[in-house]
Structures are given as C-alpha cells and as structure tokens.
Design a protein around this nucleic acid. Sequence first.
DNA 1: CGAGAATTACTCAGATTGAGAACAACCAGA
DNA 2: TCTGGTTGTTCTCAATCTGAGTAATTCTCG
Lengths: 258, 258
Amino acid sequence: MSEGIDGRYDDGDERGFLSSYDPHAFAPAAVTVDVVALTIREGLPHVLLARRAAHPQRGLWALPGGFVRAQDSEAGPADLDLPDAALRVLAEKTPMPTEIHLEQLGTYGAFDRDPRMRVISVAYMVFAPDLPDPGTGRDISEAAWVPWTTKEETAFDHARILDDAVERARSKLEYTSLATAFLPSTFTITALRGVYEAIWGRTLHAANFHRKILATPGFVEDTGELADRGGSGGGRRARLYRAGEAALLHPPLLRGAQ
Amino acid sequence: MSEGIDGRYDDGDERGFLSSYDPHAFAPAAVTVDVVALTIREGLPHVLLARRAAHPQRGLWALPGGFVRAQDSEAGPADLDLPDAALRVLAEKTPMPTEIHLEQLGTYGAFDRDPRMRVISVAYMVFAPDLPDPGTGRDISEAAWVPWTTKEETAFDHARILDDAVERARSKLEYTSLATAFLPSTFTITALRGVYEAIWGRTLHAANFHRKILATPGFVEDTGELADRGGSGGGRRARLYRAGEAALLHPPLLRGAQ
DNA sequence: CGAGAATTACTCAGATTGAGAACAACCAGA
DNA sequence: TCTGGTTGTTCTCAATCTGAGTAATTCTCG
C-alpha cells in the first residue's frame, strides 16, 4: 500500500515478511465508530445521544461511539468488521431489535477533531422504528432520544456528523425505499407519508402520495388487513402494507417538487 | 467516546487528563487511504492502478494508497485531514491538476482484508478529465490508466472497492452535475452525453439528452463559442459549454429510463 | 343519527418524456 | 464546386406523469 514502508522488504519472501510487522509501529492513530441512530417520535425525527460521563467535554451530548477493537483484548473480543463495532457500541446504549438498517455515513479524521490524540472515526447511520427509551436500570450512561432540531452543544465534531446524517437521510428517502425502515413491520400509507413529512420537514399531498406509492413497483405490498382504527379524531380504517422487495425507487420521489 | 477507557479518568480535571494519553496504547490498527481515480478514455471508463512493487501480493494491480500520516515523522509532515492524505498518495502516482473532484467513498475494515495486520482503509474517489499516462521518468512504481472492465486480479479487497466506486459513479451521474468533472473546462453536449454513455454503458437519445440538459437550470452555461471542428467523420461544429453552478440536478436524469 | 375526519378514488390541466423527423452546418472526395 | 455522408440542433406528437382539487367511502365521537 505504501511504497515507503513496503520498500524495505522488496527482496524477502511473503511468508517471512508477514511475521515481521509490528502493528504499533504504524498505528499512531486511534479508530473509533460513532453511530447516528435516527427514529421518528410523534412526527419529529429524533437521534440517540448520550451524555459524556468523562473528560474531555464531560456532560455534553455525544453520539454513541467507542474504539474499534482490532484484536481480542481484556475489553472484549475483536470487532471482525466495522459494522460489528457499530452495532456493539449502539447496543451498549440501548437495546436494539435484530433487524435494523445500518449503513456507513462517512469517516472523519481531521487532526484536531479530538483534543486527546489523533482519532479517526467511522460514522454509521441507523434507521430504526420508534423504540422505548434507553433503560435506566442498566449500567448505561445517560442516553436519550433527542429531537434532532435540538441544537444543544454537542461534543467534538458530532454536530457536523449529525448534519451530514440528516442530509443523507433526506436524500436517501428520495430514491430508495428506506422510509419503511422507520416503521414497524406493517404500516399504513399515511404512516409512510408521516416519515417523509418528518424527515423532509414539509407536508405532502396525501392523495398524490398515495397514488405514487402504489404506482411504484415493489415499494409496498398489501397485507389485506386493515388498521385497528382510524386516526385520532375518527376516520376510515386504513389498509395495512408491509415493505416490498424493491430497494431503489424508479422513478424517485422528489422532495424538491410537491 | 468509549466508556471503558474514559472511565478511569472520571474524577480528573480536563487539563491533566489530556496529557496522560499514550496514543500507541489505543491504536492497534493502521489507517490507510486508497484512491479510486476515474477518467474516460476513448469512450471507456478507466481507473488508475499501480502494480504492487513489494510483498504481499507483489505484482498485482492495486489502487494508489498509503498510510495516513497521523503525526509529523521522517516519512513527511502529518496529513491534516483525510482528503489531504488521499491527494498525497494520488500525487505520488501521477501528476494531477489542481482542480479535481474528490469525495469519500467508504471505509473498509474487515479483520482479514490485509494479511499483515489490522488495516482500516478509507477509500476516496476522484473524477478526472482525460490525463496523460503516468510519467515513467519519475520515482514511481508502474502505474497506468486501466479500463475498469478489466477484471484482472487485484490486490486485497480492491476489486470490491472498485465495484463500489463504479456503482457510486453511476448513481451520482443521475442526480448531480458531476459528469462535467470528467471533461475539460469547456465541452460540447455530445461530449457530456459521451460521459453518461461511458459510465452507464448504454446509448442515450441524442436529441432528448440535448433538450434535457439545456432545460436543467445551472447544469451548463453557453460560452458562445463553437468547437474547432465537427466530429470524426465531419459534421456541424458543436456549441461549447462550461459547467454551471448547480451541484444537484432537479429533476434528475434517470439511467433506468431512456 | 349527524358532524367531522381519515382514507381512497377520480378528474383535469399542464409539464415532461420517448421516439422520430426535419433542419443546419460541416467534411471529404468526386 | 458539387454531392453525399456525418454530426449537431430544433421541432413535432403521442403517451405518460404530476400537482391540485374534488368527491366518495367508512370510520369515531357526541
């Protein structure tokens, strides 16, 4: 990968070469994962944040995160891949269902993003249905689902990571079927529209949305059942759907248009 | 970030805390950057690859890459941010113009992706206009622009990174104006269509493409000039355009449709 | 039962798209 | 210099899609 380091071994055989590496010699940066877990509560997007229990920046909100375990150690077994590390640090803050949508957001590595040392952080996003509040009876630092509009002070560069996550989520809703990841296994078209309206921050024309969703092949499948009851103030009972097979929407739903 | 490590300092003040860190103790993984540089030559997408000059996997094609320099060292000054590292390792393989499009693709960290040690690699993409072949008179290992359809054996997991880059490029062309990044500062609509056809691997209706590009606000700006001459086999001289201000296309160009 | 509300179906004008024809400008060779 | 072939650009038209509004259906609540 780097000619500067590899060059010293140009004449060796591969077997002898592999045993001669000292990982610490080439590892002057720490690697962490941070997770932006998003959900929708009462029509508003929320993100899972934890209060920092230790210095630096003690008491500020921070994304759930932690060091990637590169090898087995006293802290626990190694993380075999980065998504494993992301799910582990998330589970340390709140219980999660087995089926959640996890995707990589990006990696942040500016030299001054952490005052302690050079830290390179791989950020992940989770789209989750509405979940209970993080348990308080467990060995968990204070964590909570916080409205993402809350511009309270956050630790390190987590405000920027959160902004990037918001923009990614808004964009993903346009051309993928990921909106269903915010909902339980069956849902109504109105609930699906609520996801779009919450993430995009605008209202959509209910009738046109309905037509468009049903016209997009593979977005939702009819379960044949009806919701238990209509909306809060009465109303017809809505049909229940489940997520379909399609991952990409053709054509997309555009937030710019109405 | 990690309660396991932070916990030991719960009662300290922030100043004393910062000086007590030993980076090596928490850094058992190396961080590298790899760059997928794409361009279009003679109507076909090409990627910049370098033959590995050293073990492991000596002689295989690999993406330009190298270790991130977390601190100043004998190898050179520290990379202040990850994009700086990406541009540095790319410049080590071939000269690059000052204005290129660079964006992060993703980070790869499976435990077995490098046989030497735990390596976490941040992949970047570059969209470049057609450039000269990498200089042979410099202290450069063999590098070349290779058609991306060449499924020759590549080192490590670089084939997968390249596949991810291809899919990202195809997708980006739909809803951003990045196709212009593959062209010189002024270009014809036909050349722009050639970018789409090369990346998407299909032909597009010339007249409809023309109409759509000019109808998309901010995609291209008319320079008022004409190309020096028509196409290869004669023909009318085309109008020259330059890239416009818009970064996102509304509405997008859809590859699924015709 | 009647008012109100949510869901779903329907209508219609305007915009967009896919396909092709037609027109314009240029090159090369007769 | 004429002529056919090639490329770039504009135009036409039917089919489809979109935004906006209206209406029908079916529920809750009082």
